[in-house]
């Protein structure tokens, strides 16, 4: 299996799916439309001549200021044909929703939960899309680029009185 063959086969099977594709140092990455994503991955996994049967990782990216703002990146590996492909799906800021890969690959479960927890991307069809790293009562998604970086003002000698006055110290 090589990159042009795979790309032409995907284009032949799903003519509307591929938005663009790039190749960097022999690694193929394909930008997809969100609606064809799950069907395409199912086909890549089950087609006997392809057999991309290992989901290496799935994660999210926040490109603040770009449209579409979010992106979900999945790396698939074919153990049989020793080939790797990177799938990218751009998601709009107002509705970052994409189909879940958990029904296809069990390993996607926790990684999609992490992507949901930290970036707020909704995976439809996921069996239990709940927070995994942050506490359950956490508000917001901290890996988004517009999330504030610092948490508390740093106390120096000139301002420690004001800061310590409103800091919630623990009691016995």
């Amino acid at each position: 299996m090589d990159n042009p063959t795979l790309l032409s086969r995907i284009r032949a099977r799903f003519p509307q799916a591929v938005r663009s594709s790039t190749e960097f140092r022999g690694a193929l990455s394909i930008d997809l439309h969100a609606d064809a994503y799950a069907d395409l991955v199912t086909w890549l996994r089950d087609e006997p001549t392809l057999r991309y049967d290992f989901l290496e990782n799935i994660c999210g990216v926040d490109y603040l200021g770009r449209t579409p703002r979010f992106e979900v990146v999945a790396h698939l590996v074919s153990m049989q044909h020793l080939h790797r492909v990177c799938l990218k799906v751009g998601l709009p800021e107002h509705n970052p929703t994409i189909a879940s890969l958990t029904p296809l690959f069990a390993t996607a479960n926790y990684q999609e939960r992490e992507t949901y927890d930290l970036l707020g991307i909704i995976f439809t069809g996921h069996p239990s899309l709940t927070r995994i790293l942050m506490p359950d009562d956490w508000i917001g998604h901290p890996q988004r680029k517009d999330h504030p970086l610092g948490d508390e003002e740093v106390a120096f000698t000139f301002n420690q009185e004001q800061i310590y006055a409103r800091k919630p110290f623990a009691r016995e």
């Binding site: 504030p148 508390e152 106390a155 623990a170 016995e172």
Partner: peptide, 20 residues
Amino acid sequence: ACGGVFNNYAIVQGVDEVVP
């Protein structure tokens, strides 16, 4: 004692917020 280098959302800024 104070959060140290981790001044971010994930780390408690000084354990004295939790225990005396």
